Deep mutational scan, measured.
Amino acid sequence: QTVQFNGLEYHFPNPEEAEKFAKKVAKELGGEVRVKDGRWQID
């Protein structure tokens, strides 16, 4: 599972970890999490 933001990609072994990370980062950055092409993106 991949999380993308600021032009970087973070890879996680399972979707739960990816989701948790994506939501944490979005909260800290005040961004929005969305899934695109099977990847988590933070904008």
Rank of each mutant, 00 (worst) to 15 (best):
Q1A: 13
Q1V: 11
Q1C: 15
Q1K: 11
Q1F: 15
T2R: 07
T2C: 15
V3L: 04
V3P: 00
V3Y: 03
V3G: 01
Q4N: 09
Q4Y: 15
F5L: 09
N6T: 02
N6C: 15
N6D: 10
N6V: 03
G7K: 04
G7Q: 05
G7H: 06
G7V: 02
G7T: 03
L8I: 13
L8R: 14
L8W: 12
L8P: 00
L8S: 08
L8A: 10
L8T: 10
E9A: 08
E9K: 08
E9I: 15
E9G: 03
E9T: 14
E9V: 14
E9C: 15
Y10K: 03
Y10F: 13
Y10E: 01
Y10C: 14
H11D: 05
H11S: 08
H11G: 04
F12T: 00
F12C: 14
P13L: 10
P13K: 11
P13N: 12
N14Y: 04
N14G: 06
N14H: 05
N14F: 05
P15L: 07
P15K: 11
P15T: 09
P15H: 09
P15N: 08
P15W: 12
P15R: 11
E16P: 02
E17A: 11
E17W: 05
A18S: 01
A18L: 02
A18M: 01
E19S: 06
E19Y: 13
K20E: 10
K20A: 13
K20F: 09
K20R: 12
F21S: 00
F21T: 00
F21W: 13
F21G: 00
A22G: 01
A22W: 05
A22Q: 01
A22D: 00
A22V: 06
K23W: 12
K23M: 12
K23R: 14
K24F: 10
K24M: 12
K24R: 12
K24G: 07
K24V: 06
V25M: 13
V25Y: 06
V25C: 15
V25P: 00
V25A: 06
V25T: 06
A26D: 01
A26R: 03
A26N: 03
K27R: 11
K27T: 09
K27D: 09
K27I: 09
K27L: 12
K27Y: 11
E28A: 12
E28H: 11
E28M: 13
E28V: 10
L29M: 09
L29N: 08
G30W: 05
G30H: 07
G30M: 06
G30C: 07
G30N: 09
G30I: 03
G31P: 01
G31R: 09
E32R: 13
E32K: 11
E32Q: 12
E32L: 12
E32P: 04
E32Y: 14
V33L: 11
V33C: 15
V33A: 14
V33T: 06
V33K: 02
R34Y: 14
R34M: 10
R34K: 11
R34H: 12
R34G: 05
V35F: 15
V35R: 07
V35E: 07
K36A: 09
K36G: 05
D37E: 07
D37K: 05
D37T: 03
D37C: 15
G38E: 03
G38I: 02
G38V: 01
R39V: 15
R39C: 14
R39K: 14
R39Y: 13
W40N: 02
W40C: 05
W40F: 07
Q41W: 15
Q41K: 06
Q41S: 10
Q41V: 15
Q41P: 02
Q41G: 05
I42M: 03
I42F: 05
I42C: 08
D43K: 10
